[in-house]
Design a protein around this nucleic acid. Structure first.
Lengths: 231, 231
DNA sequence: CGTCCAATTGAACGTGTTCAACCAGGGTGG
DNA sequence: CCACCCTGGTTGAACACGTTCAATTGGACG
């Protein structure tokens, strides 16, 4: 059952990933950890002493409501900076969903100081925040825009295709339950929507967690004209 | 039909956050405009050369989808900073909904330079962005997490109460259609939810655009455990 | 006073939820 | 090795809720 990731297992590993190029002062600050599926990067209500960046793998950023239901606010992919908070504690939990992952941890106190003294870091952090806002707003439009379930799932698949980087085949690191909680529909409806898209010939399922997008144009059309974010 | 005010700005991701006290260098940058209901601060797809701050009044931050439907991303109230973006053009429109309003305009080029050279401005702008993210995430949880329409409307009323600052009586500067597009439910359902809350004795309607919250505790309970952002 | 649009109410319909059964795969223990 | 279970996923059927279409009211303004 989901072990908390260890206190800093710091090993110096080159982070020449898909993440944005950051100044040396920033990179030196990184403490690298390896983790596995189910590890919890931080928990709802933990104190927010660090910023994080996902280097390898995938994670979910979720919140559990009072009635026990869960909502997934976002999925995290390589390169993404997360863990910003306006208050002293985190309001959401972040949990690894890929079998393995690598994350970088940055002392919030020092990182903030750096962001104030170093113009380059300042700009990059602000840019990361603004992009996060853009993505959230875009997602809100997609989800709350009164599309049907099939449209939501189609939009989700396209988002995954664009973010996880695909050559037509999209790996889904998350379960159907995760997708359901992300789109705010029931698991059954997610499943039905997928089979609907499959029987229309727009996608093909390879196993459970792998999807081939057969007709991208048609899928995009189903999703509605969802203009996506330039990253 | 909605006159455009002032030269357009390029690139905007509206961060809908409350604005803290900023240093003199910042305040000197402000260009003040007065406007009226229906005025468009900027339009979807306009290029954005400015950041904005709403001083007096209320505005809506919306986007029109391909099929003609509209979605309201956020309502803007006095003090809020908006118009940030990472991409080249506005993805949303901002329109005044109160009879009169006052807004401040800041050259984005200069403001960004200021944010990079002045640690205080840097911190405050970053803080505004982070709070905007928090608010968006919170709103997402509230809206997507609660299934019932009555619960959404209840949550909306409480949000308005907290933001517009009320002594029990909440002024609603927006129409039922605006509320509907904000909550992604139909106007009829908004209306029905309001009457349901009224007949339960939780609220009272004074005219059309003014609501008295009779039983705050019960209304909060209906809204679900909606923890709100510290501003 | 009449017009126009926002707001409300009513009734039929459609879509997603819910409850339920079933299937497939992986792990464990006898 | 097979039986067993347990979780994740799919499918089916009844129901509930919000939408939609439609009619009515109410208030603002000319």
């Amino acid at each position: 059952m989901a072990t908390r990731i260890s206190p800093p297992a710091q090993e110096t590993v080159d982070t020449d990933e898909a993440c944005p190029r950051l100044p040396g002062a920033w990179e030196e600050l990184a403490k690298i950890s390896r983790c596995e599926r189910g590890d919890i990067v931080y928990h709802q209500d933990d104190s927010a002493d660090y910023w994080y960046q996902l280097i390898v793998g995938a994670a979910r950023n979720s919140s559990v409501l009072a009635d026990g239901r869960r909502h997934i606010v976002s999925f995290l992919f390589p390169g993404e900076l997360f863990g910003f908070s306006s208050c002293a504690s985190h309001r959401f939990s972040v949990e690894i969903i890929s079998s393995h992952a690598v994350i970088a941890r940055y002392s919030r106190r020092i990182a903030e100081k750096l962001a104030e003294s170093n113009p380059e870091v300042s700009r990059l952090v602000r840019q990361a925040a603004v992009e996060s806002i853009t993505r959230l707003q875009s997602r809100m439009v997609v989800l709350l825009g009164r599309s049907g379930a099939v449209e939501k799932v189609a939009a989700f698949l396209i988002e995954m295709k664009e973010r996880a980087a695909g050559n037509g085949i999209v790996e889904l690191p998350m379960s159907r339950y995760d997708i359901a909680d992300y789109l705010s529909i029931s698991v059954e409806t997610v499943s039905r929507s997928l089979t609907a898209l499959r029987s229309k010939g727009l996608i093909a399922l390879i196993g459970k967690r792998r999807i081939k997008i057969v007709d991208t144009a048609a899928l995009t059309a189903v999703a509605g004209v969802v203009q996506h974010i330039s990253r």
